[in-house]
């Protein structure tokens, strides 16, 4: 789909009153995050990268989202979200087993590695996991649908939407403190909010969005 918010960049507001110091600090850290290579095997990381690319494609014409870096940091912490489905092992072990199983599933179905599948093959395979319809016995007692719905999918989408590029692409206002919003009624925006393309205004959105801040 065409870029709905051409020219809009949440980061342009970084030095305005919409961002407080704490926000600047944590977002700067996140943007600078690189993918750890000391975690999981190379193959597991390649599998995870491919899964991320299929589940949350990069935004068009914007700085890439480093969802993998953020997710790897989470796996490194091996913490919790506050709950663990009773059929799943702990965070890191869950990824190690699940990613291995995806790889084996690809081999069983296509005779090749998951990260070497073309896009539609990878999507079909992920859909099968989503439905719990798998053929590799590498899954063991790890239920594929639960691994997908309780671990892989929520982790990946939430890592992706923790990135400012993703916020810009969806026209989200982004950080807002100390400055919040004044105009909160429908079809109204503050000058520090994104303009949506073809919203009927005379000035093109791309030009207005240059001045958002």
């Amino acid at each position: 789909m065409a870029n709905r918010f051409p020219g809009y960049d949440v980061l342009a507001k970084r030095d305005t009153l919409s961002w407080n110091d704490k926000t600047r600090e944590v977002i700067a850290e996140r943007l600078a995050m690189s993918e750890r290579s000391d975690l999981l095997s190379d193959r597991q990381r390649a599998t995870l990268r491919t899964a991320i690319d299929r589940i949350v494609p990069q935004p068009e014409g914007r700085a890439p989202v480093n969802a993998l870096a953020l997710l790897l940091a989470k796996i490194a912490d091996d913490g919790s979200d506050g709950h663990r489905h009773h059929q799943l092992p702990g965070l890191r072990a869950c990824y190690e087993r699940g990613l291995d199983a995806i790889e084996e599933e690809a081999k069983a179905r296509h005779g090749t590695s998951f990260h070497l599948l073309d896009g539609s093959q990878a999507d079909l395979l992920l859909s099968a996991i989503e439905r719990g319809d798998v053929c590799s016995n590498a899954w063991g007692d790890l239920p594929p649908a639960i691994f997908w719905g309780w671990r892989l999918l929520p982790d990946i989408v939430s890592s992706y939407y923790a990135h400012p590029s993703a916020w810009s692409a969806m026209g989200f206002g982004g950080p807002a403190s100390p400055r919040g919003y004044v105009r909160i009624e429908g079809d109204r925006r503050d000058p520090w909010e994104a303009v949506e393309a073809d919203d009927g205004t005379l000035i093109p959105a791309a030009r207005q969005n240059k001045h958002v801040g």
Partner: peptide, 8 residues
């Protein structure tokens, strides 16, 4: 001082 405008 401790709270960011950031879900994550």
């Amino acid at each position: 001082e401790d709270f960011a405008s950031d879900e994550h």
